[in-house]
């Protein structure tokens, strides 16, 4: 479903080159639920933005659902984002001026879907996340957990092949985070492929597979001393 081979992402300024990802390799199979973890600045978010075609990469190959994406133009990338990828962001990223129904409708409109089909999909997605009754509410009238559920409904409504979640519970309290996580697990059980970036080891543990990134590379946790060092530091910090 998602395969990156020797992928690199370099940010260049006049004086320095910074590798956000270097010789990055990952292969996510269809139906997998993969948690991507790593310390701040390790390249998790860069991986996610490249995986979601929000950003281009510098070298290597990236196949998404069998398509090599590096040569695609902007419109083709937009089309793939719209049809194949569902995004769940840490900050929910709902459009504050639009009500819940209209928010979920946004990607479907860009797909040029007919009104009746849009309506059916939106209501199904909202029912799926338990917010059908809030269709006319505005984001500001909802709790953080509810907003994230709307964002999940927005991601689901387009029936994507891949769900990309960036710290989906990062802005939620424990109870709401649990609810959102359970929802993601449920969606996964129904067959969705999910790649979730998270700081939270507890959440990561609930995924099928964990991929750890350090310094822009996927590492085998058991063999990497940097992981143990990072863990030790974290344990110390937590007292």
């Amino acid at each position: 479903m998602l395969k990156m081979t020797h992928l690199s992402k370099v940010y260049r300024t006049e004086v320095v080159e910074t590798y956000a990802l270097r010789d990055f390799n990952i292969n996510v199979k269809e139906g997998e639920f993969v948690a991507v973890t790593g310390p701040s600045g390790s390249g998790k978010t860069t991986f996610l933005t490249i995986a979601g075609l929000l950003e281009t990469f510098t070298g290597g190959e990236y196949h998404l659902d069998g398509v090599e994406v590096s040569k695609l133009d902007d419109n083709a990338r937009s089309k793939i984002r719209n049809e194949k990828i569902g995004f769940i962001f840490q900050a929910f990223n709902l459009i504050p001026d639009l009500n819940v129904f209209d928010n979920v409708e946004v990607p479907l409109r860009y797909r040029g879907m007919k009104s009746a089909e849009r309506k059916q999909r939106i209501m199904e997605a909202l029912e799926r996340v338990g917010l059908a009754s809030r269709a006319k509410h505005y984001p500001a009238e909802l709790s953080g957990g509810q907003q994230q559920r709307v964002a999940i409904a927005r991601a689901l409504a387009g029936s994507p092949r891949l769900l990309l979640a960036d710290e989906p519970t990062g802005n939620l309290d424990t109870q709401m985070a649990r609810g959102v996580m359970e929802l993601l697990e449920e969606i996964h059980r129904e067959g969705a492929t999910i790649v979730m970036v998270t700081h939270d080891p507890e959440l990561a543990a609930r995924a099928q597979r964990n991929v750890h990134i350090i310094d822009g590379q996927v590492v085998d946790l058991s063999e990497d001393p940097r992981f143990h060092a990072a863990h030790a530091a974290a344990d110390q910090a937590h007292g």
């Binding site: 979601g52 929000l54 902007d74 419109n75 937009s78 089309k79 984002r81 719209n82 049809e83 995004f87 962001f89 990223n93 459009i95 504050p96 946004v106 990607p107 860009y110 797909r111 927005r154 387009g158």
Partner: peptide, 16 residues
């Protein structure tokens, strides 16, 4: 800007 970025992420083309 953020909202435009979100719309782009959700599939809006530059033309959209």
């Amino acid at each position: 800007r953020k909202q435009i970025g979100v719309r782009r992420a959700l599939g809006a083309t530059r033309g959209d």
